[in-house]
């Protein structure tokens, strides 16, 4: 199955789901289109395009997977960002950003411990100081002990 076929089939499925919700939102009201009118319209167009793609896939093949892709780095990078989101508020910005940068520099980019430590610390602290102190963005400080009036 080509990617175009999959894309087309996916579009058809999505269009069907959207149609269903659109019906629930109401297609028409007395003096104006209902809330579901627009999604319904989109779904119809999408179904048409999806069908066209599934029946007659495009000629140009989509890019193929590289043999020597760096999947390890990719997943570590993604996982570390996924970890960053929930800990951002409890741990605070400086600590969680420092962790994220350490992981990126050390394991995704393969820098030495010294470089990683230096760059991560400098970047996390400087960005915190600039955004929080100078630009007054209320970044969470979390576990970092701060003087009272910061």
């Amino acid at each position: 199955m080509t990617v175009d076929r999959a894309l087309g089939a996916g579009a058809l499925l999505l269009a069907a789901l959207v149609c269903l919700s659109a019906w629930k939102y109401g297609i028409a009201r007395p003096n104006a289109p209902g809330a579901g009118f627009w999604p319904f319209l989109i779904a119809v167009v999408m179904a048409g395009l999806g069908a066209a793609l599934a029946i007659r896939p495009g000629r140009s093949p989509l890019q193929s997977t590289g043999v020597n892709s760096n999947w390890k780095g990719f997943w570590i990078a993604l996982a570390s960002m996924g970890f960053f989101v929930p800990v951002l508020v409890p741990l605070g910005y400086p600590a969680s950003m420092w962790l994220l940068l350490m992981v990126q520099l050390r394991w995704v980019e393969g820098r030495s411990w010294t470089t990683a430590l230096l760059v991560a610390s400098a970047a996390a602290i400087m960005s915190f100081v600039v955004f929080r102190l100078l630009l007054h963005v209320p970044l969470p400080s979390g576990i970092l002990p701060l003087p009272r009036n910061w």
Binding site: A77, L101, L105, V108, E109, R111, A120, A123
Partner: peptide, 11 residues
Amino acid sequence: ILSPLIIMFVL
């Protein structure tokens, strides 16, 4: 080194 820093700015 730039790549992690770009991630930082985006987030």
